[in-house]
């Protein structure tokens, strides 16, 4: 059975997360799962023509978690998926490190693909999380999500 609450499935944390752990958690929801689609956002070394040497993420504690839980609940309601996990890191993130993970589980792959794509777009649109890029010329808050 799908978890009634987002306990352990929706997290904002400083430390690196385990992709395998998140996938195992969503798979545990049902034996009827036939597909798990994951989106992994990672820290790249360039942005708008500048070399990026590191990232810092800040979030609105409480509200950001609430928005992520809301995304999971709406995904479960609006797509034919069985479970979803969302993990976002905060604080300093080095180039190449993982930033965000979304894992959507469903009986058939198409539903999980659609829910996963929707969830990351919704996360970028509605979740109070901000990225600061470190470049050679200083640190810049990124004001718009590409």
């Amino acid at each position: 059975m799908r978890a009634k609450t987002a306990e352990g499935l929706v997290k904002i944390q400083e430390k690196p997360f385990s992709i395998e752990e998140a996938v195992t958690k969503v798979k545990a929801a049902s034996k009827g799962i036939g597909a798990v689609v994951t989106f992994l956002g990672t820290a790249r070394d360039f942005s708008k023509g500048s070399v990026i040497t590191g990232l810092d993420f800040e979030h609105y504690p409480g509200m950001a978690e609430k928005k992520l839980k809301d995304i999971r609940e709406r995904a479960l309601k609006n797509f034919d998926i069985i479970e979803m996990a969302i993990v976002h890191r905060t604080g300093r993130i080095e180039i190449g490190e993982d930033i965000v993970l979304i894992a959507a589980a469903s009986a058939h792959r198409n539903d999980a693909f659609m829910a996963c794509e929707w969830a990351i777009t919704e996360l970028k649109r509605t979740t109070p999380i901000w990225k600061r890029e470190t470049t050679k010329s200083g640190e810049v808050w990124v004001s718009e999500t590409p």
């Binding site: 509200m63 950001a64 976002h88 970028k124 979740t127 109070p128 999380i129 901000w130 999500t145």
Partner: peptide, 10 residues
């Protein structure tokens, strides 16, 4: 009250 600049998570 929170004053929230454009989000850039993800």
């Amino acid at each position: 009250v929170g004053l929230l600049p454009p989000f850039s998570g993800g």
